[in-house]
Amino acid sequence: MNFDVSPHPGGSERDELVPSRYALKVGDIDVLVISDGVLPLPTVMMGHNVDPAVRAAWMDGNFLNRDAFDWPLNVVVARSGGRTILIDAGLGLDPNLDLPRAGQLIKRLEAAGVDLASVTDVVLTHMHMDHIGGLLVDGVKERLRPDLRIHVAAAEVDFWEAPDFSHTAMPPGFPDALRSTAKRFMDEYRGYLRPFEAEREVAPGVVVRRVGGHTPGHSVVRLASDGDGLTFAGDAVFAVGFDQPDWHNGFEHDPEEAARVRVQLLRELAASREQLVATHLPFPSIGRVAVDGDAFRWVAAFWDY
């Protein structure tokens, strides 16, 4: 079954001047990348372990504001073997945060014709609030299937019982927001969780694998079918991570390990030539990875209309 990408009456499509969903096929797997909006953050979050002048030069070279940066928020829906899998769930609507351009996932799923009741599985790359918050929006839980399976690494669940932020460099307010959102999520959805240790096949050709780094249980999801492949990397890769893979992101709970994971993943993707999607790359974030000297280069895919 292909995704319905036509506008729906009453949907948000007519109010949007830019597209917020992009459909593609990975072999026999239907894939839909959906934008949850953008999250404005200070640019120091892109690399808090480097000289500010070096970071400013990188922003200048990429025609970006030196002080603030709109992080894209991407989510994936996949259909394989009769299952509909939501990979990450967006930011949701936190009343304590003034983020009006984020938290768009639920209405954009509706605009794309994806019924919440059709979702059989949710895969969480990790439990930061911009990956679980959509499930906490008022009225969402009641629309989900009672037999919904939420797949998340056991190490991630354990970490959020008593999270350690000692190696992070987040803006004020974010640690408390992350902590409270994770607690609320566990209170609401603990009975739906299907923790895994290292790897799990969620549906035919849809495999989630724990890699760690960004958070202890951070995972990536590989879709593979008929010789084609695509990896959803979650927060393992950021826009700066290709040519500056050793820059530390402020949300990383183990920056050194996160850099090692990032380099290993980019090497794998460069060798396989398979497609990459990540949460915080510019929408629709579909591209491939090329080796560029001692670093890497992101090669954006040509849109297929």
Rank of each mutant, 00 (worst) to 15 (best):
P9D: 12
G11F: 06
E16H: 09
R21H: 15
R21V: 10
K25A: 13
I29F: 06
V33L: 12
S35H: 02
P40S: 14
P40D: 10
A53T: 14
A53N: 14
M59P: 05
N65L: 09
N65G: 06
A68E: 07
V77G: 03
I85T: 09
I85Q: 00
I85Y: 00
L91V: 08
L91E: 10
G92D: 04
L93S: 01
N96T: 06
L97N: 07
L99G: 01
A102Y: 02
Q104L: 15
Q104H: 08
E110I: 03
A111E: 03
A117F: 11
V119H: 07
D121R: 02
T125C: 14
K141P: 01
H151K: 08
A155E: 13
E156A: 00
P163N: 05
A169P: 00
M170T: 08
P175G: 08
D176P: 07
A177D: 07
S180R: 12
S180T: 11
D187N: 09
L193S: 03
H214N: 06
V221C: 09
D226V: 09
D228W: 04
G229I: 07
L230P: 06
D235Y: 11
D243N: 10
D243A: 11
D243K: 11
H248I: 01
A258E: 03
R262D: 12
Q264C: 00
Q264H: 11
A270I: 10
L276T: 02
V277L: 10
S285P: 02
S285L: 09
I286V: 15
G287A: 02
V291W: 05
D292F: 11
F296V: 13
R297M: 10
W298G: 04
F302I: 09
